[in-house]
Design a protein around this nucleic acid. Structure first.
Lengths: 340, 340
DNA sequence: CTGAAAGCGCTTACAG
DNA sequence: CTGAAAGCGCTTACAG
């Protein structure tokens, strides 16, 4: 392999001078700089990442902790990963992807061994086992998802409270008085998936305040179970005129279910989901939805992380908890309830 | 950070002894080994990855080059990524994920800077720009997907030729005489996505040999275009009784299209896709399909790569090109054509 | 069975 | 403006 020593020799300068010429961290005469650059490109020089990391304590790698849990819908995860990966690349960082189901152990190993300059956690639970590890780590961390305790980390999430309110308010305003809300599986909650009850609670409150009946249930996040459950749900609540989905798998399954029941939105049933526009396209979903903005959240997390890594933000600068407000993307699936 | 020097001091031995005790690469007295281990775990010692890489020229990281091209269906990609990531983890490797649209440049940077011990390329095209870079690299590479020139790399792919044959033969045997084959977008071919024509060619040959009319067309890989195209296609060929899909986006869109046309499989139309079982579940697809086995391909690629990295396979050992044979997963969507 | 030393390829104070 | 040297934290021949 070609080292900076080779470059220096070819350029006829000291290794330190070659290093400075390439990094620009010290003034170097135009002539020398040119010679060094020339030599470097002739030889195809690329600095050894390990050596550089050892010397600078910087890897220019960001760890991405994604867990593909059986109760999460994988295609929805992918969009967060893409958001993080794209932003990281633009900022000059590579991504070390961990999909280890044992998140805490993986995180500890990656941070302790100094493989990364910082870490993005996806899929954060209310009591997330990875957080104690992250707080003990030397590197900063940014989360997508709201944990119970936000100390020491930067947090980005959709405003699920407001999402719950606005879904119910939207249908209430159009005259609906009986709704169904399908959340993610109950074990997502048990695991601490706080976004499930954050949305559900405000939906229930809003419904109660407006005298709307809201049937709040948990749904599977796998096919074909969720399809069957949706059928059972619609059977059980024949007078419900609106369906709210805080469950991507349910959203993906709903078109088939509605076809099978010969229902269409919004004529027979008003529907609002909570997923990204990209997700809607992928699954051909014709329903209006609260935009979950995975790309935006991924981007915000990485930007803040990079700011901390590069110390534009002092290490003890206050940490942020930032919610993005829910936008309802109107795909025309809501209307006043059918006259009976 | 705690270094091996700290461990050695606490254990009262030399750094080299601490290193050997931990790695087991040299005999060490039981007592010393125990003291070193004790010290290491007390201090929470984890070797610095950069330093180790510098000393050993091994990073225990595998580069994963995935391109999220607009004409590929992202959820299908994810499964290959998971297959690679899971196998790598089990083998003790971390994954450096690159989703850079400029694959060759990203690959060159990653390999030249010695960030990885080897590389897996996804989404390989017939004339893949990344291959010259990979061949020039010091690290071995494994591909998922068949390029025109396989020299110097290990290659794993579904047997698309056989897939094309078996799809047509299956429907021919059940009495079908007019079929439609929807492939991926034409620009996938222009880009060199060889699997498109590999399947299509054998499908056409098989059809010709058996006097079956086969309408072979390209379809978009985005919604909602592909839905419209499927409608147009079924309009244009009202006598076709079988539909073959070598296009994940088309498969994902088909249930909706069939509902809209009030068709069901296999009574009105026999359907065979080419996608994974996991994909079928995710999209609730009721169609029989050639299993594309992304997890298996990812696993094979990583295993072979690890073998090369760890020199169980000598560097000049012959490279492999391995096809997995297509299994038809029967979901009951094929039958004799409807009587007319 | 153990230790002192060299070396991996960088960067960066220290000198001039 | 440039160079010689130290040091980052490991591993591994070389000695004993």
């Amino acid at each position: 392999m070609v080292t900076i020593g080779d470059v220096a020799r070819v350029a006829g300068v000291a290794r330190s001078t070659a290093s400075y010429a390439l990094s620009g961290r010290r003034a170097v005469s135009d002539e020398v700089r040119e010679r060094v650059r020339q030599a470097a490109s002739e030889l195809g020089y690329a600095p050894n990442a390990g050596a550089r990391a050892l010397a600078t304590s910087q890897t220019r790698v960001i760890g991405l902790l994604a867990q593909f849990l059986p109760d999460e819908f994988a295609p929805a995860m992918l969009q967060y990963i893409q958001g993080v990966a794209n932003t990281a690349r633009d900022a000059g960082y590579d991504i070390l992807l961990s999909s280890d189901p044992d998140g805490p152990t993986a995180l500890k190993r990656i941070t302790d061994s100094r493989m990364v300059d910082g870490v993005v956690l996806l899929n954060v639970a209310d009591q997330d086992d990875r957080l104690p590890v992250l707080r003990a780590a030397a590197q900063p961390g940014a989360l997508v998802g709201l944990p119970g305790d936000c100390t020491g980390v930067d947090v980005f999430d959709l405003d699920f409270e407001e999402s719950g309110r606005s879904m119910v308010a939207h249908l209430h305003a159009r005259g609906h008085r009986e709704l169904i809300l399908v959340s993610q599986p109950e074990h997502v909650i048990e695991r601490g998936g706080a976004y499930v009850w954050r949305l559900q609670n405000t939906a229930l409150e809003t419904a109660a305040a407006r005298d709307v009946t809201l049937h709040a249930v948990y749904g599977s996040s796998a096919q074909p179970e969720i399809g069957r459950e949706l059928h059972a749900l619609l059977d059980a609540h024949p007078n419900a005129t609106g369906l709210l989905l805080n469950n991507e798998a349910a959203a993906a399954a709903l078109p088939t279910v509605m076809h099978e029941r010969n229902l269409s939105a919004p004529d027979d049933l008003s529907v609002i989901g909570r997923y990204s526009d990209e997700f809607a396209r992928t699954f051909s979903l014709p329903f209006s939805s609260i935009e979950s903005a995975p790309d935006r959240l991924g981007r915000m997390a990485v930007r803040q992380l990079v700011r901390r890594i590069e110390q534009e933000t002092p290490a003890d600068a206050p940490h942020v908890v930032r919610f993005i407000s829910p936008d309802l993307v109107d795909r025309g699936s809501t209307a006043p309830p059918p006259a009976t």
